[in-house]
């Protein structure tokens, strides 16, 4: 799926999905932020929602034909200059393993690493918030060490608790509230990521940075 051309597809009649070519990286994500900023001003677009090196454009009403928007997207992508965001740095203590990390064994089995190595590797980088999604206040983070990459679960888990630190494919994240997930939960933390009464309601936004700290490792 990785080619040098962006790919555009429809999500029913509700939205368009723009996927940037290449590996997932911050420079590409900064162009996605720039593209989102421009596209959200287009009249037929209700919301521009960045994902991981991709962008969903939801329609205020479905256009008679998508071709003109696709052409504009291609042109805007070509012209897009990386948008630097100076965000906040948030530190987050994590308890790795134990009851709060029920899928740690699966990640150990897949990666061949032990729990201390996983905790050390996972908490080493400063992660950049690439996008919000999944559920209110949830952040998609860029920068995970690829030695930790573990495929999503064959069957999604019906509910994981809020504060669950998990790995899905090449990505990692922290759930902001209890709910279903297809990711592997390796640890837990407590932090309020979302409050609908605040403006904006989410604690973190794209460009902010997150530093995990090892609070405890339960072997």
């Amino acid at each position: 799926m990785i080619s040098d051309q962006p790919r555009i597809s429809v999500l029913g009649t509700s939205a368009l999905l723009f996927e940037a070519p290449g590996e997932t990286d911050l420079a590409t994500q900064e162009r996605i932020w720039a593209l989102a900023k421009e596209a959200e001003c287009w009249p037929e677009i209700r919301e521009a929602v960045p994902g991981m090196n991709n962008l969903m454009l939801s329609f205020s009403r479905p256009p008679a034909c998508c071709k003109p928007i696709e052409d504009r997207l291609h042109a805007a992508w070509t012209a897009a200059v990386p948008m630097r965001i100076e965000g906040h740095l948030v530190e987050l203590p994590v308890v790795y393993g134990g009851d709060g990390g029920p899928h740690m064994a699966d990640v150990m089995a897949h990666t061949g690493l032990d729990i201390d190595q996983i905790a050390a590797i996972h908490s080493a980088p400063t992660y950049v918030v690439y996008a919000l999604g999944s559920h209110p206040g949830y952040c998609y983070l860029g920068g995970m060490d690829q030695r930790l990459a573990t495929p999503r679960r064959k069957t999604p888990v019906v509910s994981i608790p809020g504060g669950a630190v998990s790995i899905g494919g090449a990505q990692t994240g922290v759930s902001a509230s209890a709910g279903p997930s297809g990711w592997n939960t390796v640890g837990s933390t407590s932090m309020r990521f979302f409050d609908p009464a605040l403006d904006p309601p989410a604690l973190l936004r794209p460009g902010d940075r997150l530093q995990f700290k090892i609070a405890k490792v339960i072997r």
Partner: peptide, 9 residues
């Protein structure tokens, strides 16, 4: 295939 997380409807 593993796809990257993206907006869905």
């Amino acid at each position: 295939i593993e796809t990257r997380s993206h907006g869905i409807v």
